[in-house]
Design a protein around this nucleic acid. Structure first.
Lengths: 240, 240
DNA sequence: CGGGGTATTGACGGATGTCAACGATGGTGG
DNA sequence: CCACCATCGTTGACATCCGTCAATACCCCG
């Protein structure tokens, strides 16, 4: 069975066998990292491309005022921008959230892979476009949704993503994020995230405990989130 | 002199002459649109690729609750995602802000252009990465900055972008955005944007009038914005 | 059993939104 | 050329959501 990286790229358009082999091989040297470990920091020279094979990661920025903003979560199969050469240094940090198995592919090697054939090129490109779509959805959330809607929307998104990765079981789903992390992603304070979660629990909509999310009234959660059905379709299709 | 589109793509790595000619030709059929005109709407089938040759545009989403969130501004040379085929429908609207000259390139044609040579492919890819970088910077702003900082940051960003397009003259700069538009981009209300702008004016930092921005104390504005120098470098390099 | 990170809770304050009215400005048509 | 209208900008009073602070409880792990 191919690794998560290959699976993700292969999901949209079937890759040629030699490309699959080459991609697999490139991820050969993977390493285990502990939770909350920075793989590469804001300001660093762009190093190799990181590919998450197991575990959850995230991208984040630290702002001058001291706060932290998570920009995206990374699940198995996700990888960091190649062509970050746009800039001489990273404009954000990439870190593990849970203990993770991460492959580091040298940038030159990655470029060879991309140039392998047009199908591979497009697969990479397309993955990036998905990231862009999610980023835009986050912008909309942060700019125009209240705290409850925001929490609900992120829960929906993560639930869908988790289900794609086979991390769901009925209304139950793996969710290794602390309330502090959620707050950093949602542009809220941990205290306020707690209030919202407690309200959801009181209403019997959903419940977040250490490591797991249970959604009792998914329809209600989707309604609160204003979770766009076409957005959901996109997420399903993209991460298939 | 090549059009803004070619200039932008050519800025990072010199394109072969035949590619330049082909790109120019593809933009041959450009059309003038009035201000605030939707070129393609959320929910539409992805149509042709739009290329802004003159004028300002924006991407935006309308949320279920009724609010509008601007996701990005488009200046001459910017274009809309090709490969939006990810999804069967647009997940956001693209509109003009000012009266604009916009070329519409059929998607198939665009794809031919992209496949022309690796340099062109990379130029497109790179442009998309810049968009992603800006989107991430917006996420950080919306999530973790106060209103004054947010306004200041956007002003800095737009000022830089305007200067790249030769729209600045000393501390003066073309800025065709109404306070309402700024509010929609910043996740604030027009009333509050007005308050912040008035405070800046009172402090002699900057002044925004119909169509023009005058920055008197740029150092101060940059300080308030926490405008990252490396981010600035990226913007300069990318839109050169 | 102790310790560090996390979750929970309440009181309080402040930043931002809401509402409503008025003023300014520029475009348009008579 | 002027009057009108739509859009935008400006202002103040008030409401509310969310942040801040601080204390306590919880839970996993060593």
């Amino acid at each position: 069975m191919p690794n998560a990286f290959v699976q993700k790229l292969n999901a949209r358009a079937a890759l040629p066998a030699d490309a699959i082999a080459a991609l697999e091989a490139a991820c050969g040297t993977a390493r285990q990292y502990p939770a909350k470990h920075d793989l590469i920091r804001e300001g660093d020279d762009p190093g190799p491309v990181f590919v998450f094979l197991e575990g959850w990661g995230c991208r984040y920025k630290i702002l001058p005022e001291g706060g932290r903003q998570i920009l995206a979560f990374l699940l198995p199969g996700d990888f960091c921008d190649l062509h970050t050469n746009v800039l001489n240094e990273m404009d954000h940090t990439i870190a593990t959230v849970t203990p993770s198995l991460v492959a580091t592919v040298p940038r030159a090697r990655m470029r060879e892979l991309v140039d392998l054939c047009p199908i591979v090129t497009r697969a990479f490109w397309w993955a990036q476009l998905v990231d862009l779509g999610v980023a835009r959805s986050w912008i909309a959330s942060l700019g125009r949704r209240g705290s409850a809607e925001r929490v609900a929307h992120l829960m929906c998104e993560l639930y869908v993503q988790a289900s794609v990765h086979g991390l769901t079981n009925g209304d139950r789903c793996t969710m290794p994020l602390s309330q502090i992390m959620l707050a950093d992603a949602l542009g809220l304070t941990p205290v306020h995230v707690n209030r919202v979660l407690r309200a959801f629990k009181a209403q019997g909509i959903m419940q977040l405990t250490r490591g797991a999310l249970v959604v009792s009234k998914i329809a209600e959660l989707v309604r609160i989130a204003g979770f766009d059905d076409s957005y959901l379709q996109q997420r399903l299709r993209s991460a298939k």
